[in-house]
Amino acid sequence: MHLPDGIITAPAIIGGYAAAAGITAFSMYKIKKQHINPRNIIPRAALLTAAFFAASLIHIPIPPVSVHLVLSGLMGVMLGWFSFPAIIVGLLLQAVMFQHGGLTTLGINACIMGVPAILAYYIFYIRKKSGQKKPLTHALLAFGASFIAVVLGALMAALLIIFATPAYLDAAAERNAVIALSIAHLPVAIIEGVFTAIVVLFLLKVKPALLECDGQ
């Protein structure tokens, strides 16, 4: 779901960076509201970001192929508003360590992963609103949050490929392409949802504090 350099048009690149900058600023505002000294949680956010980075190299086998994890949903669930800066850092490190480029599309890719992550955080947050503490509620919300995060990310990527690349397609072909790309991501979304649900259940049993990213 990462868009590479060279295919995205100029306005979309600028728009992507502008959006990413805006969301980062808003994330910082939210983080500062939630934590008295945000520097205190830098080590934690950083180690988790590194852990997510490592985990994103895990492949889940669905023979004969395997899919690698996006983890945007899990990041949102565990890091809350910190997930957006964490995703930017993750993408930057990917650019440095794998050197596949991705600098011009960093803003766009950050939005494609980060906006769904924040949405996932709010979906998972429902458990607090409803006061539900049952593992099943956690698992279902984690599944839903991650599932929707992947679908939304795929949808955003599909729309960008159609409207922000130099492909001249007619309207019907465009609509079909968006639908096809989104449907192609459904299995990935299900796998990601199941994975996130298992991790959340694991954390609920082993270290529930890790699911309280907003420090409340």
């Binding site: 934690r44 180690l47 988790l48 590194a50 852990a51 490592a54 985990a55 895990i58 889940i60 086998p61 669905i62 023979p63 565990m78 796998i191 199941v194 994975f195 298992i198 991790v199 694991f202 954390l203 082993v206 270290k207 504090a209 890790l210």
Partner: peptide, 19 residues
């Protein structure tokens, strides 16, 4: 596909020890 559970456990373990 059953490998998803141990892989999720490994990820969870890594998150806990990182924390």
């Amino acid at each position: 596909f059953n490998a998803i559970k141990p892989l999720a456990f490994i990820t969870g373990t890594m998150l806990v020890s990182s924390h």
